[in-house]
Write a protein that binds this DNA or RNA. Sequence first.
RNA 1: GGUCCCAUAGCUCAGCAGGAUAGAGCGCAGGAUUCCUAAUCCUGAGGCCGAUGGUUCGAAUCCAUCUGGGAUCACCA
Length: 595
Amino acid sequence: MQGRYARMSDMNLFADFEKRIKTTLEGLELIKAQETPVDLARVTVEPPRDQSHGDVATNAAMVLSKPLGTNPRALAEIIAEALRGDADVSEVSVAGPGFINIRLSTGYWQQLLSAMVSEGLNYGRSKVGAGHKANVEYVSANPTGPMHVGHCRGAVVGDALANLMDFAGYDVTKEYYINDAGSQIDVLARSVFLRYREALGETIGEIPSGLYPGDYLIPVGEALAAEYGPRLHAMPEEEWLPIVKEKSIEMMMALIRDDLAALNVHHDVFYSERTLHANGAQRIRQAINDLTFKGHVYRGTLPPPKGQLPEDWEDREQTLFRSTEVGDDIDRPLIKSDGSYTYFAADVAYFKDKFDRGYDEMIYVLGADHGGYVKRLEAVARAVSDGKAKLTVLLCQLVKLFREGEPVKMSKRSGNFVTLRDVVDEVGRDAVRFMMLYRKSSEPLDFDFAKVTEQSKDNPVFYVQYAHARCASVFRQAKDAFPDLDLATVDLASAAAEISDPNELQLVAKLAEYPRIVEAAAIAQEPHRLAFYLYDLASSFHSHWNKGKENPELRFVNDKNRQLSIARLGLVHAVACVLKSGLAITGTAAPEEMR
RNA sequence: GGUCCCAUAGCUCAGCAGGAUAGAGCGCAGGAUUCCUAAUCCUGAGGCCGAUGGUUCGAAUCCAUCUGGGAUCACCA
């Protein structure tokens, strides 16, 4: 058995057969006879659209017919004949315009299942990302208050993408950029100072407009009062401001980390924008010098904005990044007319820092409202890394909240917005996480509080978790049926090789898609594909379970047939592992029971 | 006005490094079941993949233009 598994060059069935087919092609006389080497890059091996066609399909004949100067059907017949020599192939046929459909032997499926069981939770891991260092930056909410529901989607998508890429072999860092350097931090500090005075017993009345009114700043004021007493009050602003800033940022970040933890989001690196500004903005100066050295920086003026001219528009000379030469629509200011650095300048320095830390793939997960920022970030990547680093921006479209079909209204002004914590507390982190992934991120998402907590098959979160719980339930039943069976020591991997019912082999085929889905989703940076796959797998499992209602022979546990039951436990275990591993990537729990 | 995202069944959406008869859920129409392995199950009808051109043996998928929806435009962060 080990020997058989060793022959499978890859746990990814399709990758395995791609290699086999390409090897077969290279061995064909017709191909060896060509003077110029034949390019096999466009040959793909995929699951056929319709299962009745077979288990594996390849377009080889259609892609190669032109360079070989033959017609696709005839070529397909030649290739098909060669593939029939593979012991794991039970049937090869040619269909349509020249597709080659391959049906695999029962033995192959059995060995594959056996290997899946052996791999357990590692089944599906890939090496496609090996050798790549990826930095996934997400959330990066301003440290001026608790996280708002609008941050949820980016947080979940970024986190799941990072998990997914890790599973696909990338060396991944989850990073959070703390915007702790801008003028909004001054506003924060002044708002907190008011709360500090309040904590000292002063009556502050209504919070002036332009300051943050939220109650969450009260504890910061109290902490300052407890720590400094009235001393801050006696200081001039330039003295108390840094102290209050420091404390405010620290406490706001603690708040945000708590919010993130509630969502099961954990970053590896929290990178402070202030470190770029430290020591006379050393990092930023270096980054700009670097760009200047490469000829990307000049002093000049920008053309006025197109369309409606702002009333306060005036022509000013600034230090500009010639981003138009690296794909941007307009050159971008690095230094303001008053000599201070723009936010964008810090971003250049931040990107350079990431590049210098050795990342070759930077991913920015942003809200759709930052769409206008994408081109300049890409320009930065090209200029700073000389095109060596890949930068991708994932734009998440907005989430609309509903309650029983009615849109939830939010007013930011009153400080009375829906927080991330409100949502997590009400529906649970699993529902939030899974539902945020159950849509392509470039598509707007409707989130209904009632629907996502519904305990029915109409709710994908419940449906997938329920499938996992059912798997656990099978094991509990097995224990009842065979009290002497020691599940800890029984060799499920070997036992699973006896599965032969076509319905069950279909389930194995569904499991066989997992590695392919992982790779495709990681490469496309689309974690939602995994969520859809899990739903699909759960659906196959439930459907098979339902067949057991009609036909007790198909039930997993049959107390009259111990050996068959154990073999089926192997299958159920494989299903449970894939569900659990996939759910873990989405950041959702895989419960043992649903009560 | 420029840029980006989107348009697929009645509804909500998958499908996209081009492939065969375009899928799922809900809803709808029929049928089964009161059983229990755990929150019913099975079957069916729904389509000019926004429009028009182009690339190709082959396009929902790639390119261009257009239409209709959303986002964005700054010495803000």
